[in-house]
């Protein structure tokens, strides 16, 4: 059976989910970053409830995958370290949403 031939409602597409995105903490981080242009570390800590160390570790993985960029910028003359989704990260997140909805959204109860 080739991909695309699975019967309707098959759970097989779940195996193809991006594992970088699929981890709950990273999914939370990407979800928050997807609704903002940029945010600093403290904001993400508050929105996700993760500890700083935990967030930092997951941010490293997301940055290594090219999904998130971390930059020091001046915002209204104050230096801030800002996090934002890259176009690649946004595409990966949107693709994940499509796949998970397709795989589980219409699954029978």
């Amino acid at each position: 059976m080739t991909p695309g031939d699975e019967p309707k409602g098959s759970a097989r597409p779940i195996a193809g989910l991006d594992r970088i995105v699929h981890e709950p903490a990273r999914l939370m981080i990407l979800a928050v970053l997807s609704v903002v242009e940029s945010a600093d570390f403290l904001f993400i800590v508050r929105q996700t409830g993760l500890t700083r160390g935990n967030l930092s570790a997951h941010m490293s993985k997301l940055e290594a995958a090219g999904y998130v960029e971390i930059r020091k910028e001046f915002v209204e003359k104050i230096p801030r370290t800002l996090l934002r989704l890259t176009p690649k990260g946004r595409e990966a997140f949107d693709e994940y949403r499509r796949k998970i909805t397709a795989a589980l959204g219409k699954a029978p109860a």
Partner: peptide, 23 residues
């Protein structure tokens, strides 16, 4: 409001730029 947020809010709860997103 912006000045007050810079002084009192962002140092406590962090900063975010919401732009013009879908939400």
């Amino acid at each position: 409001l912006r000045a007050a947020q810079k002084r009192f809010v962002y140092p406590r709860v962090g900063y975010a730029d919401f732009g013009e997103g879908d939400g």
